[in-house]
Simulated assay, not measured.
Amino acid sequence: MSFAKCFGLTQPEGKKAMIGYHFSRRATLAVAARCSFLLALGAAAPAVQAAEVKVISTVALTPTLDELIPKYESSSGNKVAVVYSTIADLKKRIEAGETADVVILSRPVLDGLQAQGKVAPDSIVNVGSSYVAIGVRTGTPKPDISTQEKLKNALLAAKSISYADPAKGGASGVYFAKVIDRLGIADQMKSKTVLVPGAQAGELVAKGEVEMGVAQASEIAAVPGAQVVGPLPGDLNSAIVFAVGVGSTSKDLEVAKSLIELLTGPTGAAVLKSKGMDPP
Score class of each variant (00 low, 15 high):
Thr138His: 06
Ala158Glu: 03
Asn237Tyr: 07
Lys168Thr: 15
Lys79Trp: 00
Arg34Pro: 04
Lys54Val: 04
Ser123Val: 09
Cys6Ser: 15
Val214Thr: 02
Glu67Phe: 05
Tyr131Leu: 01
Ala30Ile: 02
Glu98Ile: 06
Thr193Pro: 10
Pro279Lys: 00
Lys207Ser: 11
Ser74Phe: 12
Gln49Val: 11
Val59Ala: 12
Ala222Gly: 08
Arg26Ile: 08
Glu67Cys: 05
Glu95Lys: 14
Gln216Ala: 15
Glu13Asn: 09
Asp252Met: 03
Ser24Thr: 13
Glu211Gly: 12
Ser218Gly: 06
Ala256Gln: 05
Glu209Gly: 02
Ser85Tyr: 13
Lys251Tyr: 03
Lys257Asn: 07
Ser258Met: 02
Leu61Met: 15
Asn78Phe: 02
Asp165Cys: 10
Ser238Val: 10
Val83Cys: 00
Asp278Lys: 04
Gly230Arg: 01
Thr64Met: 14
Ala45Lys: 12
Ile19Leu: 11
Glu219Gln: 14
Thr193Val: 03
Gly8Asn: 07
Phe3His: 04
Gly170Asn: 05
Glu219Cys: 05
Leu204Cys: 08
Pro197Gln: 07
Ala50Pro: 11
Ser74Trp: 04
Pro197Leu: 12
Thr138Ile: 02
Thr140Leu: 07
Ala120Ser: 12
Pro233Glu: 03
Thr249Glu: 13
Val48Gly: 06
Asp278Gln: 06
Val132Gln: 01
Ala199Gly: 09
Ile185Tyr: 11
Ala206Ile: 07
Ile69Arg: 01
Ser274Arg: 06
Gly202Gln: 06
Ile185Gly: 10
Glu219Val: 08
Ala270Asp: 08
Leu61Thr: 15
Ser36Met: 14
Ile124Leu: 03
Pro63Val: 04
Asp89Glu: 14
Gly265Ser: 01
Pro70Val: 07
